[in-house]
């Protein structure tokens, strides 16, 4: 994907509430195991069917303070492994937000995210800061992702971005 022109098409939204914490997204019990082992347990205490039902390209939508708790990177990683390609929330806990972007997972702050329903199809433009709800026809404003962050996300995250930088500098 290129940073300049990107619209993310999401077949389905998965909608959760406020204060979804990292212990729920990435349960401590599986912290020692590879993230592949943890991912099937992602959010199981809130929705036992989530991990087995979520599909490639889906959007993860939550309320306020998404990702409160631990710095564990397995939280956004588990969501990515299950197919989530973008996360949208009214607000984020800061470490979770940075982790997501650093892993190349676009994270959008959308105060109006509450109008998105489970199963809605979304078309998201991170640079323009718009979320088009293809199911309802509604367009929601979100905070545009700054160009320098989107460039990193488009490269595939911080490591890929650094790799490019180090190569360029070498």
């Amino acid at each position: 994907m290129s940073a300049g022109n990107m619209k993310i098409e999401c077949p389905r939204a998965w909608v959760f509430g406020d204060d979804i914490d990292t212990d729920v997204i990435a349960p401590s019990a599986y912290m020692m195991a590879p993230v592949e082992t943890m991912a099937p347990h992602c959010l199981e205490t809130l929705d036992a069917a989530f991990a087995s039902s979520v599909g490639p390209g889906d959007a993860f939508v939550a309320g306020e303070n998404l990702g409160i708790g631990s710095s564990r990177e397995q939280a956004p990683q588990a969501l990515m492994l299950l197919g989530i390609q973008v996360i949208v929330a009214k607000s984020f806990a800061r470490i979770f937000y940075r982790n997501a972007l650093n892993l190349g997972l676009p994270a959008l702050v959308c105060p109006a995210a509450g109008s998105i329903r489970g199963g809605d199809a979304l078309a998201i433009d991170p640079l323009a800061g718009t979320i088009e709800n293809r199911t309802t026809g509604e367009t929601l404003a979100c905070e545009p992702l700054p160009q320098h962050l989107m460039a990193m996300v488009a490269d595939g995250g911080l490591l890929a971005h650094l790799e490019k930088r180090l190569r360029a500098g070498a």
């Binding site: 710095s71 564990r72 990177e73 470490i95 940075r98 982790n99 892993l103 911080l158 490591l159 650094l162």
Partner: peptide
Amino acid sequence: IGIGSTEMAGVLAT
């Protein structure tokens, strides 16, 4: 401040 592992890798590198 607290950071995640990828961010830490970035700090260690730079």
